[in-house]
Design a protein around this nucleic acid. Sequence first.
DNA 1: CAACTTGTAATCATTATCATTACATGTATT
DNA 2: AATACATGTAATGATAATGATTACAAGTTG
Lengths: 143, 143
Amino acid sequence: MSISSRFSVGIHILSLIELNKNTVNTSESIAESVNTNAAVIRKIMGMLKKADLITVQPGVAGIQFARDYADITLLDVYHAVHVVKDNELFSVHNNPNPNCIVGQNIQGSVEHYFHRAQQAMEDELKTMTIKDVINDIRKDVHS
Amino acid sequence: MSISSRFSVGIHILSLIELNKNTVNTSESIAESVNTNAAVIRKIMGMLKKADLITVQPGVAGIQFARDYADITLLDVYHAVHVVKDNELFSVHNNPNPNCIVGQNIQGSVEHYFHRAQQAMEDELKTMTIKDVINDIRKDVHS
DNA sequence: CAACTTGTAATCATTATCATTACATGTATT
DNA sequence: AATACATGTAATGATAATGATTACAAGTTG
């Protein structure tokens, strides 16, 4: 199991806006950098737009940040691209036997712990921003 | 995307050992409690055995803890059932364009943040034990 | 040997992902 | 208005993982 690469592609797209700000980024040019199909990029762009992270206009080339990229956390992107449903990072087996003590009560307990683990991960994502990623890349380029 | 329910089933199996300790647990009886097929249970039992969490003998009905269940963390189970490969909770898009500044450097940066997020989740799982789950279920039963 | 268990491989339906193609729709320029 | 080029979006297909199921080999006990 792995969380969809839509997440890393979303981060890639957002980083490009700043790092390629001297040129106009089209879904086609972004697709070349990411090395995928332009339709895939457009779909993800649509998700980023819906989450108010970017602005894009139908028919007009170019993407802009909808807000300061220092304030866009990786958690924002993660939510935007719908890679994990709310509280469903871990799946719990369905319909355990109601005639069994354990079957009857295990779901509530397990869900509670799974929720805590998922929360820890998401809290960590909240501490990282697109600006951090951009800075990393700039540092790599100049070293 | 969701992490396989093998994880929650593994926890269920382990809890049953203690909560049903007065009876002999066979893959068949466990399958009834979990509400799945016995072969599925046997496969997961095999994983738990390989990870030295339980002892099982071919041909002999019954499972035992291989060590104190107060010392078996949910992280142990998570690793045992192979639901997430090492450092691959998040997948990163492959082969970004090497002719692009961002494409060339983004993987390293993103992988670093993804690793941190995964680590936070696994660290949290490490704080939870099978004993905690068993206690929860016992409490539910008596309330 | 007979009955029962675990161990394990093969098959199948279902689901998600990602790449691709195609086309509708929107915008700008001439 | 016509052309060129962009985004938006639906449909299709290959690939992979999951979980249920069946079947059977191999181990154990009485």
